[in-house]
């Protein structure tokens, strides 16, 4: 009798647990749809009033008179992201090759925790560092050196801070990419009389190219959505930037800076939610393509 009861409670527990699992799973996999839906629900008011294209390509941002043009913010975002990527990409690629092909054990022993810690530093601390070091450097040294009077709060400052934030992220993916290439492939190339560097240049980079592209794609989407650190150093002037030393106002910063007034101006909340939706779509798109490339390349190799 007691044996039967144990069996019952065991299978009951199994069932309860199974259904809780299923509920959680369904919740998790429907998250993207729920998020997109929620944001669309709030931003649809504005979308109905203005239409997507006129919002994205309009330059006028005057919330008080009901004009919401996202163009300056989108351009700023692109500027900052591209600056960060251009700065970070060569460093990441070179370091990844160094760490996977040449580095001695002690270098790895140092660099592994360094990358981990860099990846774990909260963005607000990157922002603090940006204000303490990067902004004064650009404003006082680089600016006078180039004969310009700049405040330092600029696209360039945002780009530098962002570059350092995405480096550990991109680097980790690149290290994986290079480690997943079988050693036998470099052995084959070496035994044909190629030097180490020729092997890297002609064989490893070529073999890893899809992965490298994907890593940069993921890094780019990470940079595109980063908020606080950029907001703190980028200047936040809603004008279309025309150079690296000009201040910019990227989309995430726009959302974060204006949540206070959000509910006091009509349609303003809707506009900010639309910015979030734009971010969501762009980042999701970049991520999806990059992940797809990685997966397709995994299958082929």
């Amino acid at each position: 009798m007691s044996g039967f009861r144990i069996k019952l409670s065991r299978s009951l527990r199994n069932k309860v647990h199974g259904s809780w699992m299923t509920v959680c799973l369904v919740f998790v996999i429907s998250m993207p749809v729920i998020i997109a839906g929620g944001l669309y629900w709030k931003s649809s008011v504005l979308l109905h009033d203005h239409g997507v294209f006129s919002l994205i390509f309009s330059k006028e941002w005057k919330p008080l008179s009901g004009q919401f043009g996202f163009y300056p913010f989108i351009i700023s975002s692109i500027w900052v992201t591209m600056t960060a990527l251009i700065l970070a990409a060569p460093i990441c690629l070179l370091t990844a090759i160094h760490l996977t092909q040449y580095a001695k054990r002690w270098v790895l022993k140092i660099m592994h925790p360094v990358i981990d810690i860099l990846a774990g530093i909260p963005s607000v601390i990157y922002g603090v560092w940006g204000i303490l070091v990067v902004v004064p450097f650009i404003g006082n040294h680089l600016g006078t050196w180039l004969g310009k009077s700049v405040s330092g709060y600029s696209i360039l400052a945002g780009g530098i801070v962002l570059a350092i934030m995405v480096i550990p992220f991109v680097l980790n993916i690149l290290i994986d990419v290079f480690n997943n290439i079988p050693t036998e492939l470099s052995e084959a190339s070496l035994s044909l009389g190629a030097t180490r560097w020729q092997t890297i240049k002609f064989v490893l980079v070529k073999k890893g190219l899809p992965g490298i592209v994907a890593a940069f794609g993921l890094g780019m989407s990470r940079a595109f959505g980063e908020t606080i650190a950029v907001l703190m150093v980028v200047g936040n002037v809603s004008r279309i930037p025309s150079g690296l030393f000009q201040p910019g106002y990227p989309l995430p910063a726009l959302i974060a800076n204006n949540y206070g007034e959000m509910l006091s101006i009509p349609l303003y909340d809707s506009a900010l939610m639309l910015s979030a939706l734009i971010l969501f779509v762009v980042v999701l798109g970049f991520n999806f393509v990059s992940r797809y490339i990685i997966a397709a390349c995994d299958k082929r190799c």
Binding site: I35, G38, L39, L218, S221, R222, F224, G225, E226, T227, P252, I255, A256, L272, M273, S275, A276, L279, F280, V283, L284, F286, N287
Partner: peptide, 11 residues
């Protein structure tokens, strides 16, 4: 994982 935290904030 790739979605920026500000989007989560907005959501």
């Amino acid at each position: 994982w790739g979605i920026p935290s500000i989007v989560y904030g907005a959501f």
